[in-house]
Design a protein around this nucleic acid. Structure first.
Lengths: 245, 245
DNA sequence: TATCTTATGTCTTATATATGATATTTATAA
DNA sequence: TTATAAATATCATATATAAGACATAAGATA
């Protein structure tokens, strides 16, 4: 293993980061799928021709980014949305009273369309490319709290349909299991808006009442955008929780 | 340096974390103030009787939490809100068009009161303890975008007044410089609400139009809550940005 | 059979050492 | 005096080594 550029070069990246990229490559290619254990640190060290400590530092960073999960005495595993612990990693909505409730995803509609200019741009597709649009309702306990409209490339999620979506399972768990697309990072933009007729009915609030609009672009490995989502959150009995460090 | 409990004990914490706590102690006590350099890694190592690598790991964690800032070749410094880079670390509101604008804090009111049960609870004060309440408007460019109501312990911020607040400077920069209270972490709860008369007027929106309500509890070292804040955000031309990892 | 012990492989923590990069200070030379 | 060069202190990166902790599987014992 040699560094790919001079130490003085602006494109210099330290050895552990190059190792990280190699490991990332194996995740992207699907060689190590979600939930799988990756080889041991020393195994990777000898495979890449670096010391175990260097591999460790690479894995440390990836674990901090929730791409890998360390388990002492067992090994290091590729993060998965099927894991109950990280199943709702991206849902920041919590009930005001703090009481946990069962969550249920209720698919409402699912149809095909052609990407308009805005969808094409955010998903890095050609304008006019085939996309699939999903509408679904998320319930926490008995209360409907989120109405989502989700835009996906039909090429990545070929046979997506209401039947496939079923009822209940975590969406990202499904995407991962069925299409091998692992959601890794997301950018969200939050606004306060007035409920239109459709959202108001679904969320059982008065038309015109304030809702939290959450626009999310979700990325898989390599900063590749694969999902665009507009969610209307009812914040009557819930709130969006955020920690600033 | 010895570990404070057996390796098997549930309260076990590794050596580097104990060192971290010691360093934290020096920050809490104000021995090393914001902006100051802390002693070098090897200096700390010999002072605490551990190896330099252990100190490094402690500092690494604190740098990741934005408590310390490393600067290669210079030293490691206590993070400060005066630093232009991290001046608005806690403000997640960005304009939709992405164009940066100058921000200005405009204090409106500042008065004393006694802590009600809710304020007392969130700020860990005795009910009835003296508190100071500040109302201020935040402008980005010429547009008013945030109307804040801020609750502080009068004991911690003794002579806070409209004059002291002045105009323009970052609030947390002021708190740090004048009162030695360094804001380190914050928990936020977001909701969509309807603008009341006061907020609507100040933010130049129609009464009843949707606003983003951001409730924030801000902590200083040692998880100690020192500020409670309710902010009404206008999301007409701005949005609250969040990254999910 | 059921339970306990041991072995093994893994991650975790800790230490020591060395080289490189960067910013500052000091010494030297023009 | 000024400009350059060398020394120094710092963090950054990489390697090697070791002992501890944890989980599992295999074997030994009651």
């Amino acid at each position: 293993m040699k560094r790919s550029s001079s130490l003085h070069s602006p494109t210099f990246s330290p050895l552990y980061r190059q190792i990280k990229e190699l490991i990332m490559g194996n995740l992207e290619s699907g060689e190590w799928g979600p939930g799988d254990p990756i080889p041991s640190e020393s195994e990777l060290a000898s495979r890449f021709g670096v010391s175990q400590g260097t591999v460790r530092k690479a894995i440390d960073e990836m674990a901090a980014e929730n791409l890998l999960v360390r388990q002492q005495g067992k090994g290091t595993f590729v993060a998965t949305h099927k894991d109950p612990g990280s199943a709702f990693r991206f849902l920041r909505l919590v009930p005001n009273d703090g009481v946990l409730r069962v969550s249920r995803s209720i698919p409402l509609e699912c149809w095909r369309a052609k990407a308009g200019p805005d969808v094409a741009r955010t998903l890095a597709l050609e304008p006019g490319a085939p996309i699939t649009i999903v509408r679904r309702l998320l319930k926490l306990g008995d209360e409907p709290v989120v109405f989502d409209e989700i835009y996906l490339s039909s090429e990545l999620f070929p046979d997506l349909s209401l039947e496939v979506l079923g009822t209940g399972e975590s969406l990202y768990g499904l995407f991962e299991a069925r299409y091998g697309v692992c959601m890794v990072r997301a950018d969200e933009r939050l606004r306060a808006v007035s409920a239109d007729r459709v959202s108001a009915d679904l969320l059982q609030v008065a038309e015109g009442s304030p809702l939290l609009l959450v626009e999310r672009v979700t990325f898989t490995f390599g900063q590749r955008p694969v999902e665009w989502r507009r969610g209307f959150y009812s914040t009557r009995n819930h709130h969006y929780r955020n920690q600033l460090g």
